[in-house]
Computed example of a mutant assay.
Amino acid sequence: MKIERLSQDKIRIFLTFDDLLERGIQKEDMWREIPKVHELFSEMMDQAYSELGFDASGPLAVEVFALPAQGMVVIVTRGKMNSHEVERSSEDDDADDEIYEMEVTLEQSDVVMYSFRDFEDVISVCKQLQSSALTEDGRLYSYNGKYILALEPALIDSSRHNAVIALLAEYGEATSVTYAMLEEYGKVIMPEAAVREICNHFKF
């Protein structure tokens, strides 16, 4: 579980599928109101408080993004409490059970995204993807000092999907950035056929 602060009132939590399996939670469970998911959320909020000092009191907006092969991104935004809610929360401080007032939205992205620290790693993985005839597709972005390669699963043979993920994981790491955030804040370096273009421009 990886937690980072986006602003004073917003954090982003990246959960791998291993994080979920360790707690006996399936990806589909994140859409359900079950005790295990509530326990996971409480654990996330405790870790956010201990690591970042993020106090999850008051109303919270929770966005959950499912990413293929990487895991899930949870974005938590803390709302402002009015004076009545502040009074009520202080009265509830003695209660044993912590209750989070959550508004949850769920989205699922099929785009496979991996980030790379060095452009040499991008070149290496593209060479491997092309030479193994796995894909010549992809969009390349620059975001927060890293290169991010985004691939559409629809353009990858389903029988080779795991091989593509294995190669990407060998050179890069699964990113906790959502595709919507990448589209909005990232810089497009190659809008299409990134694997082929990189192989054409950088011959070994």
Rank of each mutant, 00 (worst) to 15 (best):
P59F: 01
L60K: 03
L60S: 08
V62S: 02
E63N: 09
E63I: 03
E63H: 06
E63D: 11
E63C: 02
V64W: 00
V64E: 00
V64I: 10
F65E: 14
F65T: 15
A66P: 00
L67R: 07
P68E: 11
A69E: 13
A69L: 03
G71E: 05
G71V: 01
G71C: 05
M72C: 13
V73S: 10
V74C: 13
V74K: 02
I75M: 09
I75G: 05
I75Q: 12
I75K: 11
V76I: 15
T77I: 05
T77R: 15
T77F: 00
R78T: 06
R78S: 08
G79W: 00
G79V: 00
M81H: 03
M81G: 08
N82Q: 06
N82C: 04
N82D: 15
S83C: 01
S83F: 09
H84V: 11
E85M: 11
E85P: 01
E85S: 09
V86R: 14
E87T: 06
E87K: 13
E87Q: 13
E87I: 07
R88W: 06
R88I: 04
R88C: 02
R88N: 10
S89P: 00
S89L: 08
S89K: 09
S89W: 02
S90I: 08
S90H: 07
E91A: 10
D92E: 14
A95Q: 12
A95R: 13
A95K: 14
D96Q: 06
D96P: 07
D96W: 04
D96E: 13
D96V: 12
D97T: 12
E98N: 11
E98T: 15
E98S: 10
I99C: 07
I99K: 15
Y100K: 10
Y100V: 09
E101A: 13
E101C: 07
E103R: 07
E103W: 01
V104D: 03
T105Q: 08
T105V: 07
T105L: 03
L106P: 00
L106D: 02
E107S: 14
E107V: 07
S109Y: 01
S109Q: 10
D110M: 05
D110Q: 10
D110E: 12
D110F: 01
V111Y: 03
V112H: 04
V112A: 05
V112R: 05
M113F: 02
M113V: 15
M113L: 10
M113P: 07
S115F: 02
S115Q: 15
F116I: 05
F116E: 07
R117V: 14
R117P: 04
R117S: 14
D118S: 13
D118F: 10
F119R: 12
F119V: 11
F119A: 14
E120Y: 05
D121F: 03
D121W: 02
D121Q: 12
V122S: 12
S124Y: 05
V125K: 06
V125E: 07
V125T: 07
